[in-house]
Design a protein around this nucleic acid. Sequence first.
DNA 1: TTGCAAATGATAGTGCATTTGCAATAAATA
DNA 2: TATTTATTGCAAATGCACTATCATTTGCAA
Lengths: 124, 124
Amino acid sequence: MKRQTAQRQAIEKVFRQHDRLLAIPEILAYGSRIVPSLNQATVYRNIKQLVAEGRIRQVKHPDLGTRYERAHKSHHHHFHCNGCNRVMDLPGCALKEDHIVPDGFVLESHDVFLSGLCDRCAGR
Amino acid sequence: MKRQTAQRQAIEKVFRQHDRLLAIPEILAYGSRIVPSLNQATVYRNIKQLVAEGRIRQVKHPDLGTRYERAHKSHHHHFHCNGCNRVMDLPGCALKEDHIVPDGFVLESHDVFLSGLCDRCAGR
DNA sequence: TTGCAAATGATAGTGCATTTGCAATAAATA
DNA sequence: TATTTATTGCAAATGCACTATCATTTGCAA
């Protein structure tokens, strides 16, 4: 990608406007509002590039499949609401740092996926 | 499934012999040693039943796809070794119980996936 | 033992996310 | 402004995990 195209800029804008885990169809839908002709294949192609460039991070959610988010964000986990089906970021890390892995093991990365009901769906 | 077939028993035996997260091809491979004619479709059919009966649990690993383990096991997490590519159970829970989710949220379940190097692959 | 429905094996089919081929379009450079 | 070629849109193609079909086999109750 050496050229600044309207569709590429639109896709990046989508991530700025919707700062959360996004699926390809969502990116396409939001992006189409900016560039109506935007095509699914173009979304895939640009996302691939953005991931390669380290601007976007791919997250493979066990229940929701492959999603994407901006890469600059600090470490956080994802909460999936079973009520409204949205995924929200939970800042910080809920992992106990020590003694997670047995002696001799080297922990390189971890993913935590939480689910339940968000405040709205839990009702008041 | 109302009948005790050799293939069904073989599949259950595979889980007893290999007490860890297993993928369908693994179950097929190990099961074939017991019942050589064992077929992939039969593995899928029986696994589906076993999951429905609550004897086997399905785990959707973000990197490794769908895997299965015996359901009776107590809460644990999975460590994926990037060296030997095996997945091992880590007993206990490494999550901080309190304040994981914001006020008003109800946490129903969580999955923790760890990865790195196991003791063997980390070398000594 | 026999008869029958459940289960299997082999294979084709499905659904889905992702990719590719290619002609048309449009950024960038001269 | 013209030229070049990366990028797009479209649609067909791919890969894959899983399911369905159906003739054959087999567990099991009579």
